[in-house]
Design a protein around this nucleic acid. Sequence first.
DNA 1: AGCGCACTACGTACGCTGTACGTAACTAGG
DNA 2: CCTAGTTACGTACAGCGTACGTAGTGCGCT
Lengths: 238, 238
Amino acid sequence: MAGRAAVPEVIWARPERTGRGPKPAFTRADIAAAAVRIADAQGLDGVTMRHVAAELGCGTMSLYNYVPRKEDLYELMIDAVGAEHEMFEPTGDWRADMLRNAEETRAIMHRHTWVPRLMPGVFGFSPNTLRYLEHCLACLEPLDVPAGTKTELIALLNGVVTTYTGNEIATAERARAMPWSAEEENAVRMAYLGSQIATGAYPRMTAAFTEQSGPVDLEAVFRRALERILDAFDPDLR
Amino acid sequence: MAGRAAVPEVIWARPERTGRGPKPAFTRADIAAAAVRIADAQGLDGVTMRHVAAELGCGTMSLYNYVPRKEDLYELMIDAVGAEHEMFEPTGDWRADMLRNAEETRAIMHRHTWVPRLMPGVFGFSPNTLRYLEHCLACLEPLDVPAGTKTELIALLNGVVTTYTGNEIATAERARAMPWSAEEENAVRMAYLGSQIATGAYPRMTAAFTEQSGPVDLEAVFRRALERILDAFDPDLR
DNA sequence: AGCGCACTACGTACGCTGTACGTAACTAGG
DNA sequence: CCTAGTTACGTACAGCGTACGTAGTGCGCT
């Protein structure tokens, strides 16, 4: 009856230390940093409670004193890389500022390629997430639309950045970590795609594929997508 | 040296049966259907090789005759639900047609709530994915832009649909499956958010939050996002 | 016709995961 | 000073993906 309550927890709401008992050996930041280090070096699958504990030099189960569930560890990681955002002074040009924010997010994801895989699952408003949102709203100050619309712009832009950069990274990662080379992988997939196209069942796709010359420039596609989204919110263009 | 080659495989390129030996007990469609049934009933985490095999009534390792890696099972699943797309006759109104496609994708995802979680990882061009792309291109026939731009439109739209519907589902799922109620969860999160806002560190967020009255209508936000993206590609609006 | 081999079927086993639980050491508050 | 709340962490368990070995089956070739 007086057992531990089955109550939801937001890790950010839980105090970092409580005063009684031995002093905690680590801070939350230590733990996040260790997990990020592992994820950067070995990929997200290397982030296990055992590995993080070993990286910190403590027993596996000691981690659970700081992080009640593994999911919370992920939340710590996302918050940690959120600190890498440069919260620059808004210039007054909201389009340029938001583009800069987007490019920076993309750069962070390329530094920490596990971020896009983690983003969808992480929901909480961590401290650095809140700081970033506030910064985006500051950049959007000159934009004369309701606050709700600004929120929608930020969400749409962030979603697209995550999706696109995630794709870029997935494409690049498939090369690494596989026992075969990127060329082989591509060759096999393209051979299959070619065989499908050759059946004539997909005439329009065939046209689209043969029309394009050379490999797709993913970065250019990304930037065009950003511009288009900004266009869609720009009152000067309607 | 003459061991099994470490060569990439596209499951769709691998023939479904080869004529020699005993007849396979299942088709790929059987397996996909079983996996989808489990995922619908128990969630994606219920989809394990053991469970799928049990659902089919065969030994766990027999599954590996049909599906070399679990990842391929996921690809089968995505392809299976792709068959639920209605490939209607294009009306000539590309905006309306693409909106219909997007809404249908959203409906499919709400029927199979595990799809958004799986989408980012699945890369291959499965038969039904190809059919759907072809159908989208057919819908975009009246749109007078280069083929590459059409592809970008489709990708952007699909990405947004996945992201938004994934969010809708994640929000709804958090209520289920948790040992606490959605109200409790929300209360705790909102209490934390309120405490953060109360610090005054995020004035613009505070304004945005207090300005809005009532809960956010996620579906309306979704539809606005779609319209904006279509706007961005509409030559009649530039 | 009959042999051989490619294929299906599947039990066992291994290394790994998240984490529940119990116990020992430690320190701040009453 | 005592005691209650913490930290620390070893052990244990259920479950995962899948490598490997063996037995049975039936098509294709000689």
